[in-house]
Simulated scan of single mutants.
Amino acid sequence: MFTSGPPGSPTGPARLVSAHARVFGETSSTALDPALRPFLADLVRPYGNALREDLLTEGVGHSFGEMAEAMLPAVVGPDEPVDLLVLAFAMHDLRLGRATACYLSDRCPGTPMAFAVCDQGSGAAFTALRLTESYLGSGACERALVVVVEQSALHYELGEPAPIPDRHTGVVLRLESNGNPLRVGQHTGVDAQRVARLLREDVDRLGRQATVVASSRLAEAAPGVADVVADAGQPYTGIWWELAEGGHDGLVVLADYEPSLGLLCAATVDISTIDHSAVDSAVVAVA
């Protein structure tokens, strides 16, 4: 078995250089792939979940690989090799059976080491950032991309309710060993009654005024703490969209809470000098 990890102990934080966000307004051809139905049927059969035949027939959904590939040129040029690419998502990719992170590595300058973080709900993006921080802080990695994606089609019924995105949305964060420090913290085993206190403690430790950008889940669990509440229709990319849009000044705390896992996450960054020129918040159609 091949294993890999950051080469040595971190010596400094990851530093956010730029952010790019995009909504993909239409479906992709992957949604009509005839292999999708039997693949999903095998996937859900042990759990007794029914397929959504209406979505399969209509060809609804988008592929994370195609979404992310379209965004890469906005954050990194052909002469800017990337050392690490981390893909973070909660819902499964529409292009099943493909190692999407490896696919993106092949299309990213520098063909970086690449892997995905999933099965953590909204915490996946924060874990991806923590891992990226370890690599960049080691001194052996200079440039990294964290790609957070969600698509709005779940082609089978769920046994328990879960947030489903309204739109196909992606955010790419470019991080380097030089730039604005971005620090990430995660609390595990947090019940809803402790969320507000822990988040306030995290914000108070900053020692100066910060804008708290929170998901709707977190805002509900910790009333009065958030200054900005992200779009509830973007449960996994919403707070990162707020970061990419750049409508805030100074120190920003991006926070989220995954109640199913008791996971409270917060990322802190001074966005005063982040490059927002690459931000594209328009809806684009990718066939």
Rank of each mutant, 00 (worst) to 15 (best):
L206Y: 11
L175K: 04
A222R: 03
R194I: 10
R208N: 01
R208E: 13
S215P: 01
D191K: 09
V228P: 07
Q186G: 03
V195L: 05
R208Q: 12
V213R: 02
R200A: 12
E176C: 13
V184L: 01
A192R: 15
G170I: 05
N178R: 15
E176F: 09
R174T: 12
A232I: 06
A210G: 05
A230C: 08
D191T: 13
G179R: 10
E220S: 14
V195G: 10
G189A: 10
D202Q: 11
A226M: 01
T169D: 10
L182N: 00
V228W: 02
R167M: 06
L206G: 03
D231Y: 11
S215F: 07
P223Y: 03
A221H: 01
V225Q: 00
A232N: 01
T211Y: 07
L218D: 00
L173W: 05
S177G: 14
V229R: 12
R194Y: 13
T211N: 07
L182C: 15
G170N: 06
G224D: 08
V225C: 03
N180C: 13
G170Q: 08
S177W: 12
T169P: 03
Q209M: 08
G185S: 15
Q186T: 14
A221R: 03
E220P: 02
V228H: 09
V213Q: 03
R183S: 14
V213W: 04
R208L: 06
L182S: 05
V172G: 00
D231T: 08
A222E: 07
T169W: 11
V203N: 02
P223K: 01
V172R: 04
T211H: 04
L175Q: 03
V203C: 04
V184Q: 03
Q193S: 15
P223V: 07
D191R: 14
P181R: 00
E176Y: 11
A210Y: 01
R183M: 11
V203F: 01
V184A: 04
Q186A: 13
A230F: 05
A219G: 12
Q193C: 10
V203A: 02
R174Y: 09
P163E: 04
R208M: 08
L182Q: 11
Q209G: 13
P163L: 05
V212P: 12
V213H: 06
S216E: 12
A221F: 00
G233T: 10
Q209K: 15
I164D: 10
R167G: 02
G224F: 00
R205M: 14
L206F: 11
P223E: 10
V171S: 02
R200C: 10
D166G: 14
V229C: 05
G207N: 06
V212C: 05
E201V: 09
R205E: 14
D202L: 07
V171T: 12
D166E: 12
R217C: 11
P163T: 08
G207V: 11
G189R: 13
V212N: 05
G233L: 07
P181T: 13
V229E: 13
Q193R: 14
S216K: 06
A232P: 06
